[in-house]
C-alpha cells in the first residue's frame, strides 16, 4: 500500500538507461522491497497488541513478509555486484503484452504523465463533488474536445449519448444508485 507509485516516470527511467553498461543496481526494486519491509514491520508491531488467536496469522504473515523483503534486498545487492554488464536482453516476442504496457509507462514523458493523471483526478474528484450525471458528460466533452481535439459536434454528441445511456440504464430502468455528489 505504501509502494512508491510516484507518477514521475522520468526519474526512474533515467538510471536504467545510464547504467546499461555498468553494474545494474535495481534501485527501484530495492526501494520497493525496503518499503514493503517497513510496511510489514509496522504491521507486525501493530499485531503484537492483539490476542493470541486474532494475532496469530497477522504475526506469521508480517514476519514472513519482513524476512522475504530483506532477503530480496540482499539478493538484489549480491546479484548487482556479481552481474556482468549484460546488454539488456529484452526479447519482446517473449513477453509482448506486459512488456508493451511497461514500455508505455516507462517511456511516456513527464508532461504526458502529469496530463493523464490530472484528467483521471479531475474525473474522480468530479464524481465525488458533483456526482455521476454531471461529471460523466462534462468529462467526456472536455476530454474529447481539449485532450483528444475532436470536433465540437463529435464531443457534444458523445457526451449526450453518455448521459442518455447512463440516465436510461441507471435512473429509469434499474433505479440503481450512482455516485450522487455532495450536494444532492
Amino acid at each position: 500500500m505504501t509502494t512508491p507509485d510516484t507518477p514521475a516516470g522520468t526519474a526512474p527511467a533515467a538510471p536504467t538507461a545510464r547504467q546499461k553498461t555498468e553494474h545494474r543496481l535495481p534501485v527501484v526494486d530495492i526501494v520497493i522491497s525496503l518499503g514493503l519491509a517497513a510496511l510489514f514491520g509496522n504491521a507486525f508491531w501493530i499485531a503484537t497488541e492483539w490476542s493470541e488467536r486474532a494475532g496469530l496469522f497477522p504475526r506469521m504473515v508480517t514476519l514472513l513478509g519482513v524476512a522475504l523483503a530483506l532477503l530480496h534486498v540482499v539478493m538484489l545487492l549480491l546479484r548487482a555486484r556479481r552481474a556482468v554488464p549484460v546488454v539488456e536482453s529484452r526479447v519482446d516476442a517473449d513477453d509482448e503484452a506486459e512488456g508493451d504496457v511497461e514500455y508505455v509507462f516507462a517511456h511516456a514523458g513527464g508532461r504526458v504523465w502529469a496530463g493523464s493523471l490530472a484528467w483521471v483526478a479531475a474525473f474522480f474528484v468530479g464524481l465525488y463533488v458533483v456526482g455521476l450525471f454531471v461529471t460523466a458528460p462534462l468529462f467526456a466533452f472536455t476530454y474529447l474536445k481539449l485532450s483528444v481535439r475532436r470536433s465540437w459536434v463529435f464531443s457534444l454528441v458523445y457526451a449526450a449519448v453518455v448521459f442518455a445511456v447512463l440516465y436510461l440504464a441507471f435512473e429509469v430502468a434499474l433505479q440503481l444508485q450512482v455516485p450522487p455528489g455532495l450536494f444532492f
Binding site: M1, D29, L39, F40, P58, G65, L71, H72
Partner: peptide
C-alpha cells in the same frame, strides 16, 4: 521472490 513478496502483501491486505 517478487511473486512471493506480492503474495505476502496480498495476505496482509
Amino acid at each position: 521472490t517478487k511473486g512471493l513478496l506480492m503474495a505476502v502483501l496480498g495476505l496482509l491486505v
